[in-house]
């Protein structure tokens, strides 16, 4: 990332891919209330994605709107972090992933709300309120799972061990960006570390730190996600409901 376009595109892609993944839980969640909750969170992410991608298209100035950016790019052109494209796994994986994402998005959107770019500031001020609910919801579930039964603890710890390496990518320094992601690290730690402690989960040591999403180098999972998300639009270009 460097300029405002790349930055805005990356944030929009994070939200769009997260929305698509969360949407996969519809009709499959462990209980009705959680089904509704995950669909609602997906809708919030999609709302933020639409605003960010629309603005990215304007910054680019090449005539691409939100639909062109969402449906007509291939995986190498997506700039989302790897974390959001990983498969949902079990409920513990989904909740730990949401915790890591929300604990990044809350300080990110809060910082955006104070940035000089008026459009990004308006989006940040709007989205941070919704992200606060996502953070609250996922933190409650991670505590409940981690400090629950032996089985829920085992699954929550396994989810954390699997996902932890991927969160480092979120804080890769980029001093030229409207908000340097490296400056968000302290706020993330201040929220996540106490939640993990209360959940009796052990924070993995820093070892492998996969990245590349911001440069368009993704896991194989993104191609399958995009295939499902884009197939209708590509099969029927310009179709309207």
């Amino acid at each position: 990332m460097n300029g405002p376009f790349d930055f805005t595109l990356a944030l929009g892609d994070d939200a769009l891919v997260a929305a698509q993944r969360l949407g996969e839980w519809a009709t499959r969640a462990p209980e009705m209330e959680e089904d509704i909750a995950l669909a609602n969170i997906a809708l919030d992410q999609l709302g933020a994605a639409r605003l960010l991608l629309s603005y990215a298209g304007e910054l680019e100035g090449a005539g691409r709107d939100e639909d062109a950016l969402a449906y007509l790019r291939d995986d190498r052109e997506f700039r989302n972090c790897l974390l959001v494209e990983l498969p949902n796994g079990d409920f513990a994986v989904t909740m730990v992933k949401l915790l890591l994402l929300a604990a990044y998005q809350v300080p990110l959107y809060t910082a955006l709300a104070g940035c000089p770019d008026e459009r990004l500031a308006a989006i940040g001020a709007k989205a941070r309120k919704e992200s606060a609910y996502h953070l609250d919801h996922s933190a409650l579930w991670v505590k409940r799972l981690g400090d629950g039964t032996d089985e829920s603890h085992r699954r929550a710890q396994a989810a954390l061990d699997q996902l932890w390496p991927y969160h480092h990518e979120l804080f890769t320094a980029d001093p030229a960006a409207p908000v340097d992601p490296a400056t968000l690290r302290a706020d993330f730690d201040a929220v996540v570390h106490p939640v993990l402690a209360e959940a009796t989960l052990t924070r993995p040591e820093t070892g492998w730190t996969p990245g590349g999403g911001r440069d368009g180098v993704h896991t194989e999972h993104l191609s399958f996600l995009l295939a499902e998300m884009q197939v209708l639009h590509r099969a029927h270009p310009g179709a309207r409901w």
Binding site: E34, A37, Y133, H137
Partner: peptide, 28 residues
């Protein structure tokens, strides 16, 4: 506006009782 507010008692809109419980923080 910086944190999720804690609502101590939501009154039932039908009978007015403060003895209520949240089933899901996300609804219809």
């Amino acid at each position: 506006g910086t944190a999720v507010p804690v609502t101590l008692a939501v009154r039932c809109p039908r009978c007015g009782s403060p003895e209520t419980a949240q089933l899901s923080r996300f609804g219809s």
